[in-house]
Design a protein around this nucleic acid. Structure first.
Lengths: 201, 201
DNA sequence: TGTACATCAGTGAACGCGCGTTCACTGATGTAC
DNA sequence: TGTACATCAGTGAACGCGCGTTCACTGATGTAC
């Protein structure tokens, strides 16, 4: 059975890659079983050997997206002060969204496949994007960069930071998709201002 | 022709109201010409008396949404200090999203109908949500609540504030749609922390 | 080595559906004289 | 007031399309003896 398994995983991955490609090039609405099969010189019926339905494919693509988002954040250099590190992972989050806009939007249209904090499965997975963020916040707390605030601990700080970077990412891939100014530079200041607010008593 | 015109506008509005209702109750994907016509005891073909296509209807619904969002923000009491006023319109933005989640999401899926700053038509419209926000920021500047920062003037402050409230709104209507905690209370602190960051030198 | 059979990935065609849109038509209303 | 005609909002049925999914089938590969 080993060749079967190996081939199975190769084909499965090819399907997911083609689906991601379609979403990237033509948007999520353009994803159909027929076009997906065409991309890998396959028949639409054959896809059902690997996935039970179109929705299963979409969910798998979303989960892969969350893994890739986490990978962006894991690349950030940890050997810097806590606030610089937090700034770095924030920028990584935004960069993922800018480089994979439709994938990013799709991921947040299917929250059931997403890294929502109330999702137990993901909470146990240490490498989720949200947990990476939480660990960065936790490091800042233990290094004393955040003033003590009643009712505003790790979870609240994590939520605050998430909303900030998510707002930047979302606005830039929807409303400001073709904004002519240099928003990268503005984002630097926005994130720094935001962190200053969290760190000022 | 007057009765014709009056009736025309009444029916047109009824179509838009029904479309908004469907989006609110069943989500944007459930909006079809047939169901839309059924809601107002009409024929699908008749809709083409009032709109050229389904897309025209969706765009009109989005534009109405932006007007309603602006109305939420216009309701906010201006007779308070500038930072309290900014806090108020931020909360109004989030409240609109929470009370009209699918409408809110749809609005930002059709940026061509939206209040993007590069959209000239909207920039001339003083009552757009973005201009209301900009006016609030402008008031803060003239009252001296923001420290002078090179390269971080009205537009940058407006962008920063928009990303903040948009991030809260988006996360809450997608990833955190059924989050069990009291995010309203947390949002208060998040927005205050954010404003503190902007107002601290 | 050769033969008969079982397995199974992959296929082409079809099913059934809902969609946006078009079109010939209806029937009520308004107008002219 | 009555009649003939024009207007026009609204309709039912149909067109053509693309979709997700199913299914009987094919043909290559592996297995047993």
């Amino acid at each position: 059975m080993k060749p079967r398994t190996r081939r199975y995983h190769r084909t499965r991955q090819a399907i997911l890659d083609a689906a991601t490609e379609i979403i990237h090039e033509e948007g999520p609405d353009a994803l159909s079983m027929r076009e997906l099969a065409d991309r890998i010189d396959y028949s639409a019926a054959g896809l059902y050997e690997y996935f039970g339905s179109k929705e299963e494919i979409i969910l798998a693509v979303c989960q892969e997206g969350h893994q890739r988002l986490a990978a962006y954040m894991l690349e950030v250099d940890r050997e810097v002060p806590a606030n610089d590190y937090l700034y770095g992972i924030g920028k990584a989050y935004v960069r993922f969204a800018l480089e994979n806009p439709d994938h990013f939007l799709l991921m947040f249209s299917y929250p059931e496949a997403a890294g929502a904090p109330e999702n137990d499965e993901m909470h146990q997975e240490n490498d989720s994007s949200y947990n990476i963020l939480l660990q960065g916040i936790g490091r800042g707390i233990s290094e004393g960069v955040f003033p003590e605030r009643p009712g505003f601990g790790l979870d609240e700080l994590g939520y605050a930071a998430w909303t900030m970077v998510h707002g930047i990412a979302m606005l830039r891939v929807t409303a400001l998709r073709e904004y002519p100014l240099d928003l990268d530079a503005v984002d630097d200041q926005v994130i720094h201002n935001f962190l200053r607010g969290l760190m000022t008593a």
